[in-house]
Amino acid sequence: MSTLDRWRVLDRVRGGTASLLDPVTERDRERRRIAALAVPFLALALFGAFIPIVVMFRMSVSTSNLAIEGVSFVAYERLFASMLAFVPVLGDGVGADPVYGVVIWNSLWFGVLTTLASVVVGVALAHGLEKYDLPRQGLLVTLISFPISLPGIVAAFMMIVWFGKTGVLTNAFAFLSGADPGGIALTGQPSGTTLAILGLFLGYLYSMIPRATFLLRGSYAEVNTDAEEAARALGATPWQTFRYVTLPQIRPGIVGALILTFRTALAIFGTVLVLKALSVVTFRFNQEISVGFDLAMASALAAVFFVFTVVFTFAGLRYTSAEVTG
């Protein structure tokens, strides 16, 4: 039975290829059209993404940094030993340098924090933009979407403009309080200090709030306003209406926005490179590649990073909004 099935599948594959090249029925022609339409994209995805990623995985187990040769798991061993060494109790006995554990932990907590902050602000902004009669609403939308076009390095520069040593807010605050601008600047401080991390936090928000807002505006556009009006007419307060009518409807949108904004947060690189406030994974890539050319290690770290983002994106989107995966 199963053998028969397998033959049938093989036949279908063979027949499918033949009918793609020389279609007889209208349905075959349609399939050929679909294939023709999808081929350019698939070719780009194959040569632009799939093959490079496969090579990257291969590179991460290479014994040489300059070519792909041999198989060694040294990079992964170092990476996982380092991650284990970072774990408080378990890692006490591990003699490895916890540097990779530290950068991964930094990426995660900082990403979660900035994601939560920007999605909360994003919900409020999307609510205001969608529900209130604001003057010049079109202009507001355009202005809030403006930073989406700016690369991370420019977002970092915007933070220098606000909070740097010569920054506008720093100097205004220093003028009012009499403090030294150098002591209260949020950028240009040593890496890892509270002020520097606060500056980086705002730099992340600069890039992430607009993205979160526009993801959530999409969910808000689909909210059933009749139900909200009914709730209000039946005496619910604005908060109750939001809590019991609006929120359940936009909840899948919020989860989707959390996932996609978190991806953005993990992948931010330019902002960290300019502000140098916290050693996150993306910043570590730069050190692996420009300081000592350790491509095997960079590839291993990139492989772990890639697998992590893919898994949590698809797992997350599967469980929340079916519309993204169709």
């Binding site: 993404a49 990139a302 994106t313």
Partner: peptide
């Protein structure tokens, strides 16, 4: 169709990862 759509509208690979992958490829 759903998967094709997902891969077309979702940037699956972040820029910096793609950069590292391009270095050796």
């Amino acid at each position: 169709r759903g998967w094709l759509n997902t891969f077309a509208v979702l940037p699956v690979v972040p820029g910096i990862i793609l950069g590292i992958a391009f270095l050796r490829t």
